[in-house]
Amino acid sequence: MPHLLSASDLPLPQMLLRIRAWEEKRARGRDSRQGLLEQALPFRAEGSVALLFYEPSTRTRAAFEQAVVALGLHPLVITAESASVQKGETLADTVRTLCAQGVVGVVLRHPEAGAAHAAARVSSVPVLNAGDGAHEHPTQAMLDLYTLWVHFGMPDPASHWLAGRKVAIVGDIAHSRVARSNLILLTRVGAEVWLCAPPNLLPAATLPGATLTPCLQEALQNADVVMALRLQRERMEQGLLPSLNAYRRDYQINAQRLACARPDCVVMHPGPLNRGVEISDEVADSARSLILKQVHAGLATRCACLEYALSPHPESGAV
């Protein structure tokens, strides 16, 4: 069963093309005022997809919910406030129950790393990880990669099309599932990835394929792409950072700090933004910002991911 638990489960070239196809369908659909539902689907879709959200989410949940509808399926949204969770039902039993009720897929957002793996172990249908603790957020990384692919002119998706490009991911790396999933995808297409954070927000050990640094200047030097990550205010309370001001001074992505990056460097952010903290207004809203393109790609990416995971004829593993 093609569970989608990690970015390493994604068959990359194929996914980029599938997302592109969904984007095109979406554009055509708008032109002809037809819903996505009328577009030919590669499989006969029926049934419900459970969207299990144990953690608050706006864009991921909205995009998945829209995507489920676009595929002609019914979204069954269950949040942590719902009855069974409040009554102390375990995640495993919730998943077993949903499977017994006949859902065709489970999309899971959970505050614990490995929750999607735990769900997959007891699930009889594909599980899609929509973010598990500080572990991974594969569909976010997929939409980020797609956004970059379009930005760089849709090169041969099977090639190492980011070879020779430097990507700097800046922010709370230690607690970021977005950084982990992005690192996996970016290195697969040949990018040079730098992870930059204050010393106590850097991982305690190295991550495969990444260069770790506490020095923003070093990370941004000649960068082609800069991804800023959201800073949680609770990191200050945990004593990991001296102050918000010190973070702003040393790690905020603003025009001045970007001066050492390549002139055509683009800036990304998985959202939601803390404007004026990890990213300045002017950069977030500048021409080099891909932030709204990322959000836009979210729907087609979730459509493609669901279609891939729920297809009755799963393509052979990741490429």
Binding site: A113, A134, H135, H175, R180, A204, A205
Partner: peptide
């Protein structure tokens, strides 16, 4: 706490 915990996103 080490390379595996860092990759898995688990506190070490």
């Amino acid at each position: 706490e080490g390379e595996v915990s860092v990759r898995l996103g688990l506190r070490g």
